[in-house]
């Protein structure tokens, strides 16, 4: 884990999700991208010659670099998706 949660007035209720099979507590209203950053997961997919890891860039839905598999659906943008109870997130950059 490399990030931390700060005091935040509008934080939602706790939400139980799974990240690469590991149980993780997130909070309603957070994007999948925010949770990945909090958990220190920056490498999200592999691309290019030698398949080096790639991570999110723009955070606003443009660059498509934060595509992860959510509940079995591939290529969902982590920055444009809010966490939900029971959500399963798989990254490909490990």
């Amino acid at each position: 884990m490399s990030g931390r949660r700060l005091p935040y007035p509008a934080r939602g209720a706790p939400v139980a999700i799974r990240l690469n099979g590991r149980p993780v507590t997130a909070f309603a209203g957070e994007t999948v991208f925010a949770v990945l950053c909090h958990e220190g997961v920056f490498a999200l997919r592999r691309g290019g010659p030698g398949r080096p890891p790639r991570g999110a860039l723009c955070g606003m839905g443009v660059c498509q670099e934060c595509r992860v598999t959510i509940d079995g659906t591939p290529d969902r943008r982590a920055c444009m998706t809010l966490v939900a109870e029971g959500m399963e997130i798989e990254t490909d950059g490990r």
């Binding site: 990030g3 949660r5 934080r11 991208f33 950053c37 955070g59 606003m60």
Partner: peptide, 11 residues
């Protein structure tokens, strides 16, 4: 945007 959501993504 991360900071506004109350997350400090690194030290």
């Amino acid at each position: 945007m991360l900071l506004k959501q109350g997350i400090l993504p690194a030290a």
